[in-house]
Every structure is written in structure tokens, then in C-alpha cells.
Nucleic acid binder design. Sequence first.
DNA 1: CGCATTGTGTACCGAATGGTAGATATATTA
DNA 2: TAATATATCTACCATTCGGTACACAATGCG
Lengths: 198, 198
Amino acid sequence: MGRGRPREFDPEMALDRVLPVFWRDGFEGASVQELAAAVGVSKPSLYAAYGNKEALFLAALERYLSAFAAGLVEQLESEPDGRAAVRQYLRDTVALYTDRSHPFGCLIVTAATTSDSAAVPAAVRSALCASMRKAATVIEERLRRAQRDGHLRENADVSAMAHYFHTVTSGLSVQAKAGTSRETMLLVVDEAMKSWAA
Amino acid sequence: MGRGRPREFDPEMALDRVLPVFWRDGFEGASVQELAAAVGVSKPSLYAAYGNKEALFLAALERYLSAFAAGLVEQLESEPDGRAAVRQYLRDTVALYTDRSHPFGCLIVTAATTSDSAAVPAAVRSALCASMRKAATVIEERLRRAQRDGHLRENADVSAMAHYFHTVTSGLSVQAKAGTSRETMLLVVDEAMKSWAA
DNA sequence: CGCATTGTGTACCGAATGGTAGATATATTA
DNA sequence: TAATATATCTACCATTCGGTACACAATGCG
């Protein structure tokens, strides 16, 4: 234990309280007031722990990636059959985006959609952009592996397919936030998978 | 000409100046200050002409639908071949979302993504929701016509397909706003159309 | 105990938000 | 010309924004 007065809240636990607010409202939309209230602490305590709103968001984004997005990727890579892996990835995405225990849709898509504003720091914008590129890349690498495994024909345009599946997930986030039902979105996934002939 | 002092700007022309600001920043993100500056007029003049920010946005949304979205629908219904119509609809959507003469992506998707905030009036939220439902319905009706024309097999799930294509356009809006190139997005459209066997 | 160190909340900062009061300018009507 | 009606802009309103100064509370160390 260090010198001075001990902190009355766990900064890691605080991220779990802060995350849903950013998830629902994006970077701009979430006020520091509301973020502090979600943690159950005053504004200066949040600033003392994280520095500023930008750093707090970046920490929450990391938490989002490790606590939610990572699970999707893990599944994508553990399922041996390429097509089944992508299909289950899309279905898991739908399940995540429509889970009632947290806001609908994708934090990254939600935050990125409003990141053109001057009120959004460049570091936040670039982190969101990097996360989206990373998601497309993960899909692309899985498709390339499927190609090596003979689950995908040799002359398939793997890059185009990856961008396509990533675009579908982006659209699913929009639909989830607009209130489209999980059942409907699962049907959308079935349609999306038809582009990949078995 | 009525009594009093004549207005020094055309409210219809003003909508064309206001629209790109809402398109880029959404409802919350666009400040009345900036909207007035875009028109080249002071805030009270805008308020005198439209009432408040909410009414101004709804007017801009109508303009967006008639000046941009309507063209897409018209093409969708004029092309006789069902599959070609949908394909061209998606390609036209990409062209619209990546047109450099106005903000990237879709006004409706951009504004709807941040409409959870309490700062967004319920009327705006419901208008955006209605526009999205309308878009899906337009596609669904076109697919039903294609089915009657024998361009789509009888047992196809037209509703699911409509939601699917609408989800793709939502995703294309997100991608366009994130900076994905037009060429890449046209490849995505090709992939998306593969789900509809010719 | 006294001292240094650190976390805490209250109460504030300047700036920006949506919206408006009120004075003034420009038109038609009588 | 006088009266009426509407548009215009400056200057302001209360509120909220991200961020902080400061007094005080709670710890470890001597």
C-alpha cells in the first residue's frame, strides 16, 4: 500500500461501469457528469484516476475489445470449418448486439459514426478506425486459412469477402440500435451466408 | 407578397445549406450556430422561419428523402429485371454514400445512431425509425414484384432478403463514413449480390 | 504526535449549448 | 404620411459542457 489516502473505488471495476455509457451514447454523447455518476464517484476522482475524457474512453474501448470483441474472435478461430466459423461469428455478433444486459449494437460503430465532430480527439478517432480495420483483417485472415483448408475456393476474392462480412456486421450494429429483433437479424445472417456457396 | 418586411433568404434554398451539416454531424452534433452560419443568416432568423432545431431537422430530412433517397427508389422500380434492379440499387447507394459533393454515408443512419440521447426529440427519433422501416419496405415490395415476374424463386423468404439488403446498405453507410473507398465498397456489393443466385 | 502524500467532494471556471427579448429595418395598406 | 406587420441582428438568458482550484479527509512514515 502506498502513502496517501487509499482510493475508494477500483479503476478496473470503474471501467465496467463507464463502458455501458460510452456504448450507448458514444464519445461526445456521454457526459463526464453521467460517467462519474455511473461509477458512483465525483468528477475530480475520475479525472485523478484517468486524466481526461479521452483517456477514459480509450481505456473503456480496450475493455470492450478484451471483454466482448475478443470472445467473438476466439470463436472465429477455434471452429475448424471455415464457413461454419464465419457463420457462427455472425450469429455471435447478433447475440452480442441484441444482448439486453448492455446497450444494443457495437460500441465501435456507434462511436465511429459521430467521430467527425471536432469535439472528438484525433486519438479517439484513430483508435476507432484502427479497431474497425483490425476487425476486417481478422476476418480476412480467417478466410485465408479457410482457403488453405480447402473450405473456400482458390480464386475467391478473400479481401472483398472480408470487407463484405465486416460491412454486414456494421449493418447489424445499426439495425440492433434501431431496434430490429434478434430473430430478424438471425435471418439476415442466413441470407448473408448464402453468398458463400457451401 | 404579404405585408411586413420580406424574408432575405429562401427557406427552401436554406434547406440545401442546412442539410449537409446535419448529414455530417447528426442532430445533436450540428449546432444551431453552425446551421445559421451555413445558411448565411443569424440564429433568430432561422428560428423565425422554422420554429426550432427539431422542425428544421425534420424539414432537412424531408429534403434528403426527396432530393437523394427518392432517386434510388425510382431506379429500383424502373429497372425491369429484379436482380439487376437490386444490384444497381446497391451500386447507386455506394455512389451516393461516397459522393464527394456532400458528406459521406447516409443521413438517416448517421442521425439514428446517436438518437438514443435524451437531447434528441422523440419526433426526430421516430421519423428516423420510420424512414428506415420505409427503406426496408420499399426493397421488400420490389423483391415481391421480382417474385411475381419469375426473377426470384417462389419459396424465397422475401422479408428476410429485404432486411438483409437493408442491413447491407446500413453497413455501407458506416463504411463510407469510416473512409472505405468506393472501389472496395463496389466489390462488397458484388459479394452481397452472390446471395441471390441468378 | 507531526508531516508528507494522495484521494475526496464542493464549488467554481470559461466556453458552448438551444432558445429568446427587444430594438430596428423594410415592406404593404390605408 | 401614418399604421401595421414581418424580418433582421445584437445581446442576452439559463443550462450544460469538459476541466480544475481548493479545502479537507485518510493513510504511511518518522
